[in-house]
Nucleic acid binder design. Structure first.
Lengths: 226, 226
DNA sequence: CCTTAAATTGAACGATCGTTCAATATTGTC
DNA sequence: GACAATATTGAACGATCGTTCAATTTAAGG
């Protein structure tokens, strides 16, 4: 028996109301603050009190809007994941419409560039999110989130690359793809290392993006054609 | 004035004693347990109580042997760092003695293979340490540890690679090197992803190592010769 | 064997953790 | 404007955190 009454006696279900602007703003500012603090200090390192303070909200508001700390973390990751996936899939679709057959270089660009452009555009929230993606991808404790948010799109691109290497088995392709993804994520997690090892000789973000795509393209080709 | 008395009145410095076998075993078991739990749950996620319990020791023994949680973490990272650096530098030295001039492939192998062999040999402690290295390398909070433990050796290899690309500026070389290192670390952090994306088609560790070296060698060459 | 430095033990410290609650304030809906 | 669903507030909950302490046990040095 569902709660929806089909018949004679309407069980007086409490009338629903729309969310107020203030409530939505609170919910969003909590997500923003959590995005920043989780990416800076990790899951256990960021307390709900610090998140609430950074959001200008009460600690109880976090439970009210986002159930618990764990679901708050999941919602932070999920929020921009679909947007990122859509950008990647759109780029791939546009590519397949433009040129047939597609090149490995173009497929990798379709996957890598949306992340790099979002992470490098200067938006501190997207920069924090980029670090968060790297953190989730590297930690086995969050592998269910990765499976849900990132693996489906990754599977599409791996399948697309597999068409370009029909003689290579899929496991080798997946491994090379993970090499490429981790190199991409390193631009978020190791930006301080890059600055240190490079000796202050900063490069523009789009130059780094070009270098990454060239690196991954040649790397995959060498690893998969062997 | 030092505590060592040079002259007439020996100020009765308390007689020192050697460490007992039990004490040393306790200290080591704490390091081992911390290595495992830190790599599984992160720094804040692993409590000193859990570490003590896993080590079969008292919580107070952790402070006694390793001062604090933070220095315990640093000692865990430092313990095997010098061994790893030595293996890499030895491989590089042997390489330079064997062939002159050296090849990019051989230099990268000298850096990558010691890590892969230690992480893939089956020793659960080294496997945990490999994940820990990935965690430290990716987290800006531990960048002082990375600078101390890993960057010096990385600098040696970057300088060696720079000799092979005399026309390329060092920042581009450092970036490509970080791409390679992060791809290496992904074999520790994303082993579960590799198994998932590869569809159960497991590869032997040495095959993965070969694939990684080919990937990085070709990637660097393409990124640096452009 | 005796002395005593070193090490272990169990309990306790104050601080902070994530979560919950009743009371109050806000605001969409009629 | 009145009603009630929604949202905010401030305080408190028990649990766990890293650290410290005095008392006890262990074992190296003479």
């Amino acid at each position: 028996m569902s709660s929806k009454s089909p018949g004679s006696v309407p069980p007086s279900q409490p009338r629903r109301r729309a969310v107020s602007k203030r409530s939505l703003a609170t919910s969003l500012s909590i997500l923003d603050a959590a995005e920043r603090l989780f990416s800076e200090r990790g899951y256990e390192g960021a307390s709900v009190r610090d998140i609430a303070k950074a959001a200008g909200a009460q600690i109880a508001s976090i439970s009210f809007h986002h159930v618990s700390k764990e679901t708050l973390f999941e919602r932070v990751v999920e929020r921009r994941a679909s947007e990122l996936s859509q950008l990647r899939l759109d780029a791939l679709a546009a590519l397949k419409q433009r040129q047939q057959p597609v090149t490995l270089d173009a497929v990798l660009s379709a996957f890598l560039r949306p992340y790099l452009e979002k992470a490098g555009a200067g938006d501190p929230q997207w920069l924090a999110y980029a670090r968060l993606v790297a953190m989730v991808s590297a930690d086995a404790r969050w592998h269910t989130i990765s499976e849900r948010c990132f693996d489906p799109t990754a599977g599409v691109f791996i399948a697309e690359i597999a068409k370009l290497f029909p003689r290579t088995d899929s496991s080798a392709i997946a491994v090379s793809f993970i090499f490429s993804v981790s190199a991409m994520l390193s631009l978020s997690t190791s930006s301080w290392r890059i600055e240190a090892l490079a000796g202050g000789n900063r490069q523009a973000m789009d130059q780094l993006a070009d270098q990454l795509v060239r690196f991954c393209e040649a790397g995959m080709r060498a690893a998969l054609e062997a």
